[in-house]
């Protein structure tokens, strides 16, 4: 297809992506170099019969004029990146200098908001992704063995956790694990502890969010593996059987290697989706014990009556760097494959 025709077909789609994905990234990068204007204060003196009092107030007119002139705020260079709510370079230097052992350093760094969010995001991504693949594979294997007429309904119900809106799905679970809900009350009587609450401790909140993540994404892995199982070559399975392979050995040495490319596809999708975990934190009201990078940005944009654009933009840039690092191996592999094809 000549370049001109190609362009004629693709320009609307390209324009939309450039305007609303590429340009915003540039805009975020630009915004991250600026911070909010300092408040312009004016001191006014009120003199009355009992002497003069001076009061300090914000000069709204001057602030509005300033915002008109420089909507992005004042230039701050890389200052936002290194301040205490982002990379916190000074704080870390201080912590390293004053702490006695490695554990203390780790604990104190974990209290900095950016690192707290980063650690949760990465833990979530790398705990949930393998569990999703394992559970999805197990479900696919057992569902593949049930009678044909039952498969449709089973797949129908299996799809629900994945397709339901993440916020709605997490709310449904959140209400059930409430200490007055069925799961919360059930756990209390199971452990004989009437004060047990899944919302109370950070560890339990993390486990709850991980459980939600696996519940939400396992159907995706299940459906992909299930479709893959339909195409496993039967003659290879039969020859393995003739060679005396047991049921488990057939799964381990024939089915699993055959489905390996699918597992890497699921892993890629899951890494991308889990890295941006956000809605469950709102649905489970978990922000006190677990925040993610996306949640930090949302929180900055929601801050009071004036959004912290500079801070949100700096976190966004750091998140984008994270996404690119995460995708680098995939991009390199695709590049090699593409070159081989040509």
């Amino acid at each position: 297809m000549p370049h001109k025709t190609f362009l004629a077909f693709i320009w609307p789609s390209l324009l939309a992506m450039v305007l609303f994905i590429a340009v915003p990234i540039v805009s975020v990068a630009y915004q991250s170099l600026f911070i909010e204007h300092e408040q312009i204060l004016i001191t006014s003196e009120n003199c009355g019969p009992f002497g003069c009092t001076s009061s300090v107030s914000v000069d709204r007119a001057a602030m509005a004029r300033l915002a008109e002139e420089q909507p992005a705020g004042r230039y701050n260079g890389l200052g936002t990146y290194t301040n205490s709510s982002h990379l916190a370079t000074d704080e870390i230097a201080g912590i390293v200098a004053t702490s006695e052992n490695f554990n203390e350093i780790r604990n104190r760094i974990m209290n900095l908001p950016f690192y707290k969010a980063l650690v949760f995001t990465l833990t979530y991504t790398f705990v949930v992704t393998p569990l999703v693949i394992a559970l999805g594979f197990a479900i696919a294997v057992v569902v593949n063995a049930i009678p044909q007429m039952l498969k449709g309904p089973v797949i129908f119900f299996s799809l629900l956790p994945m397709l339901v809106t993440p916020l709605v799905g997490s709310l449904v679970l959140f209400w059930m694990i409430d200490s007055r809900g069925i799961i919360g009350a059930g756990l209390q009587s199971l452990f004989g502890d009437p004060d047990l609450s899944l919302k109370a401790s950070p560890t339990l909140t993390w486990i709850t969010l991980f459980t939600y993540g696996v519940w939400h994404s396992a159907p995706f892995a299940f459906v992909v593996f299930y479709a893959g199982l339909q195409t496993v070559p039967t003659d290879t399975l039969e020859s393995a059987m003739v060679d005396g392979a047991s049921r488990w050995e057939r799964v381990r040495f024939v089915v699993m290697p055959y489905l390996l490319p699918l597992a890497s596809f699921i892993a890629l999708m899951q890494l991308m989706d889990n890295f941006r975990i956000f809605e469950p934190i709102i649905g489970f009201s978990a922000a006190a014990s677990a925040t993610s990078l996306s949640y930090l940005i949302y929180n900055d944009l929601r801050a009071g009556n004036s959004p912290l654009f500079g801070s949100a933009a700096a976190t966004s840039m750091l998140t984008i760097v994270g996404v690119v690092i995460l995708l680098l191996p995939v991009l390199r592999r695709n590049w090699r494959e593409f070159n081989r094809k040509i």
Partner: peptide, 22 residues
């Protein structure tokens, strides 16, 4: 183009939203 689309797909939406607002 396809690789750029893949990277774009992985962008957390909220990072883009922080670029739109202003």
């Amino acid at each position: 183009l396809l690789m750029a689309a893949l990277v774009f797909r992985a962008m957390p939406h909220v990072t883009l939203v922080s670029g739109y607002l202003l």
